[in-house]
Design a protein around this nucleic acid. Structure first.
Ligand SMILES: [Mn+2]
Ligand SMILES: [Mn+2]
Ligand SMILES: [Mn+2]
Ligand SMILES: [Mn+2]
Lengths: 226, 226
DNA sequence: ATAAATATTTAGGTTTGTCTAAATTATAAC
DNA sequence: GTTATAATTTAGACAAACCTAAATATTTAT
């Protein structure tokens, strides 16, 4: 049964929210999609009928195996198109999310796989997010939030999880993008800000609101993207 | 006022049909879109309210200047994506129409113009159809139907106007695509078939049903695409 | 444990684009 | 010129996706 545009957006969003919590609430989903809780309740029933989500009244949503696979294939297309826009069309990383939101809905396996091949079968998108493979498998990545990571030295930016153009543009200007190496100098308890140093440059202070969107890994071998 | 997916398809189809006739009838449009005359009547009113078409009850449709420009920009995107699929992703010409039908609806001027640049600002798509420029201008091309063309010698295939995969595949196999040079050997009155020769190869007979989709130009200078 | 606050669902309605069936207008045939 | 045929429009209905307002359930606070 073919999915509609809207159903695809619901599945993708549910997947995103499930990375934070075990189940997704009606309200959280409504606010993420930009609709009302009442509409979400409506759609939840439809997605359950199509066996894409598990949903019981007042119990929130999770993805079924089918729903999960569908979500991962949408995300695969989204992230491949983001790579295409940056690598082939010289877009900057803050511009690509919006356009990829539309391109991701073009469902052609042949197109997706040839696009992947053209790009050299990339493993991560321009924001450092992993790209699921053609059957929807995604590597479980070890990355920790800049606010919580235990190690302070030899860190590398893995992912930036916010897609707003303004934040991405700001981070770009101060030199933070996937692959950037940095050390934590200090954490301040009073406002949870983080002081960091990128290579030999002057120290920078990142507010909690910014730092919470930055995920890092500790550099083990040669570094670079997974 | 942003156009919906459906409105874009209507405008594009109206443009296509207007190449044949001065006005488009409700029935012709319905059959081209794959819907009912009743639905077309409905949509015609909406498009008129948006000043995209001229439409009076029982009088058929034409495009307004605004509608024409919108149609040409959709066609620009369609044909550029077809080029991309063939040139960059090694699709064959009979596969690309269907996928381009979806990609054409992604409306981003920046995307369209960068895509065009990536492809070397092509003037024609893989089927030989001209690509409108960024402001919707399209060169008026001199091409005549294989069934009517006066000259018999030194012809070159300009365009193949059918998009069905089966016909395109067949033409590909017998060596007919935009740029192919051929001569007409004879026209048969009894069934309107056309006997042609491609370069030094054995003569071929094309039925009226096939020939009517083939447009040619007479080779003046060095040939090649316009 | 009860009350207050919050989350969720239900009910009823709107818009977009579609359909079928019936009514009307236009065109073709005699 | 009337009649038959074909094209087109109107009327009424439906599914998808959304909304607001009201009702109900759950959670939190006292
Ligand atoms: Mn994105
Ligand atoms: Mn991304
Ligand atoms: Mn096409
Ligand atoms: Mn084409």
């Amino acid at each position: 049964m073919a999915l509609t545009f809207t159903e695809e957006n619901y599945l993708k969003t549910i997947y995103m929210l499930l990375r934070q919590d075990a189940v997704v609430s009606t309200t959280a989903l409504a606010s993420a999609i930009g609709t009302t809780p009442a509409s979400v309740t409506d759609m939840s029933g439809k997605l359950r009928d199509k066996q894409l989500v598990d949903y019981e009244k007042y119990q929130g949503l999770t993805l079924t195996p089918q729903g999960l696979k569908a979500a991962l294939l949408i995300i695969r297309r989204h992230r491949l198109w983001e790579c295409f826009l940056v690598d082939q069309l010289q877009f900057s990383w803050e511009e690509v999310h919006e356009i990829a939101e539309e391109l991701e809905h073009v469902r052609s396996v042949k197109l997706t796989e040839r696009l992947s091949h053209l790009l050299g079968n990339p493993r991560v998108d321009p924001h450092g997010d992993p790209i699921p493979d053609a059957s929807g498998r995604i590597p479980r990545t070890v990355r920790e939030n800049l606010l919580n990571v235990q190690d302070f030295k030899k860190l590398e930016v893995a992912t930036v999880t916010d897609q707003s153009a303004s934040l991405l543009k700001f981070l770009d200007r101060i030199g933070i993008r996937p692959g950037t190496r940095l050390d934590i100098l200090e954490r301040h308890d009073f406002d949870h800000s983080v002081e960091i140093r990128i290579r030999k440059r002057a120290p920078l202070t990142l507010s909690e609101q910014i730092a919470k969107h930055i995920y890092v890994r500790t550099i083990t071998k040669a570094g670079g993207h997974p």
